[in-house]
Amino acid sequence: MEASISALLNEFRSHPRFIVTSHARPDGDAIGSTLAMAEILHQLGREPILVFADDVPHTYRTIPDIERIHVTKDARTVEPDLNVPAIVLECDGIPRTGLAGLDGRRLINIDHHASGRLFGAMNWIDEHACAVAAMVYRLALEAGIKITPSMATCLYAAILSDTGSFTYPSTNTETLSLAHNLAAHGANPSQIAQDLYFSNPESKIRLLGAALSNLQTDGPLAWSWVTTSDMDRAGAQAEDCEGVVNYLISIAGVESAVFLRELPLVDRYRLSIRSKGKVDVAQIAESFGGGGHRSASGCTLDGPLTVATERILNQLRMGLC
């Protein structure tokens, strides 16, 4: 069942320690929200244990207190006691975390995706929130938590990244008011933007070149891909693919775009899908076992590349009809 904010805060006060985690391949919202949630728990006198299945991408490593995050595939390596509950942010289920060691724990599920599911003992899903960070901010206000400069920075970075730098439809007066409030509490918008967007490793730019060389368009559709060979030549990691699809959707006249990344060792492709609003890409991603938002979603498809590409393009074409 859906939980109220007051019920969630009562839950936080009922246990001395909490695991806090988010999805595998963490993005800005996952990272910033997790760190901000840790500050809330700390101010409530609770001990947060931050656990991710995958490393924090390079561009987010300047976010305050990033060193507090443990990276492991099994939460029991840092918290073996299964009586310790877990707060799961921005996930539609335990598998999305990529973590073992969560089964059997009491789960508190906080999410803002349209594809969110009520898998926790307590669930708060608000698909109208621009980011989970906005929900964490509401928790802090309701709890009377002091919004420190470090918390404000974490939340601002999360919102900046999850709104596509304030370009997605989730950007409205409430979103901009929240950004204003976080800046007033010590977040430095210019510095955060520079850290997120002007500190790319060379491998990411080389991979972008490979992706753009594969660019294809067909009327309102644009798509591109990279293979594992492209990744190897660029010396790139999976995190270097973040944001490539935004170049495709930025093309004038394009209404929907998809970027496909070949996964190593298996004939499968990870898809990032974007829309300018005419196509609900969340529904399309869900039909393939993925999910996300109306304008930004993702899923995984079996190869070969030509088959995976045609499957997603057919769905996008139908969505544009």
Rank of each mutant, 00 (worst) to 15 (best):
S4L: 12
I5R: 11
I5F: 13
I5E: 08
N10L: 12
E11C: 05
F12K: 06
F12D: 09
H15W: 12
P16I: 04
T21R: 06
S22D: 09
H23T: 00
P26E: 04
D27K: 01
D29I: 04
I31N: 01
G32D: 05
M37G: 00
I40S: 03
H42N: 11
Q43F: 08
G45D: 10
G45W: 10
P48D: 09
V51H: 09
V51K: 07
A53Q: 04
P57D: 03
Y60P: 00
P64I: 11
I66F: 10
E79H: 06
P80D: 08
D81L: 04
D81P: 01
V84P: 01
L89W: 02
G93H: 06
R96I: 03
T97R: 01
A100P: 00
L102T: 03
N109Y: 04
D111R: 07
R117V: 00
F119M: 07
V136T: 07
Y137N: 11
R138S: 14
L139V: 09
L141I: 15
L141K: 13
G144K: 09
K146L: 11
K146R: 14
A152R: 02
T153G: 08
P169L: 07
N172E: 05
T175K: 11
L176C: 10
S177D: 15
S177R: 14
A179Y: 02
N181E: 15
G186E: 12
S190M: 07
S199H: 14
N200A: 14
P201K: 06
I205V: 14
L207Q: 00
S213K: 13
L215N: 06
L215F: 00
Q216Y: 10
G219D: 12
P220M: 05
S224N: 09
S224P: 07
S224E: 07
T227W: 09
T227I: 08
T228I: 12
D230C: 05
A236K: 05
Q237N: 06
A238Y: 03
D240F: 09
G243S: 10
G243M: 08
V245L: 07
L248R: 06
V254W: 13
E255N: 11
V258N: 02
V266M: 11
D267C: 09
R268W: 07
R268D: 11
G277H: 10
D280V: 10
A282I: 02
A282E: 13
A285M: 11
G289K: 11
H293P: 02
S297M: 10
S297T: 08
L301M: 10
L301P: 08
D302N: 13
D302P: 00
D302C: 05
L305Q: 09
E310S: 13
L313I: 15
L313N: 08
